[in-house]
Amino acid sequence: MSEQIILSARGLDFYYGPAQALRSIHLDIPAKKVTALIGPSGCGKSTFLRCLNRMNDLIPGARAEGSLTFHGEEIYQKGRDVAALRRRIGMVFQKPNLFPMSIYDNVAYGPRLHGIRSRSALDETVERSLRAAAIWEEVANRLKRPALGLSGGQQQRLCIARALAVEPEVLLMDEATSALDPISTGRIETLLGTLKDRYTIVLVTHNMRQAARVSSRTAFFLNGEVVERGPTERLFSMPRDRRTEAYLTGCLG
C-alpha cells in the first residue's frame, strides 16, 4: 500500500540562538496515520513538533534551516501565512490551555476567528467537534458554563474539540496526556483510535507503551537527531540501532 506523505523534513536544522536543537532531520509523516515521536527529555522531539506549525516562532532568536514541507510547500518560506498554516495544522498542548470563557465559546473560538458568524452553523460545528472529541455527553447540558470548571481530562478533550472545530488536516499532540491520570489517558488514546481515519496525527510522548499502543509509525530522537524511524511494531520489536534498543530496554524494562 502506498502512503501519501503530508509532512516532510529534509536536512532540517533548528537553532535557539546559538544552540542547535535539531541536526539534519530527515523524516516523512504519512497522511491519516498516527506517528509517534519518542526519545529522552531535551532530545528535540517537541522542538520538531513545534516546527511543523511554527509555534517556535514565539521564541525570540529561534530559526530553522533546511527543508520542511507541508503538501510539498515550504513551511518556513518567507511571507508564508502562518495563521493559515496553523489552521490546517492544529495542536494540543501538554497542559490543557482553555481560555477563560464558556465551554461553547472555547470551541467556537476558532470558527468565529475564521469568519463563521451564523448561530446555527456555530452550534452545529460545536456539537460535531465535541462529539468527535468524545466529550459531548458530558458537557451537552452545560455548554454555557465556564470551561475552567471541568476536570483535567475533560479539559484536555475539550482542547482537542477546540482544535478539531477549525477542521485541521493534521493534529499535533505535545505530550497531551502527560498531565492526566491513567483513566483520562485511556480515554484520549481510545479517542485517537477513532480520529486517525480522518486526521494525520503526530504525537510526542514519554510513554513508550502509549506510543506502542496508538501509533503506526515511530521516530526515535536523540540529541537533536533522528536515530531510527519505521513502523511502530518493527521498531519496538527489533530495533536496528543499538541506541534505540538501549533506550527502549531502559524505558520498558
Binding site: A83, G90, F93, N97, R162
Partner: peptide, 24 residues
C-alpha cells in the same frame, strides 16, 4: 497558554490580542 492556544488554532496576532490578551 492563551497565546499558544489561540495561535495554535490559527488566530492572527491581533485577533488573539483583542479576544484574549486585552480582556485578560
Amino acid at each position: 497558554s492563551y497565546r499558544e492556544g489561540a495561535l495554535g488554532l490559527g488566530a492572527g496576532k491581533w485577533p488573539m490580542i483583542r479576544t484574549l490578551i486585552l480582556p485578560a
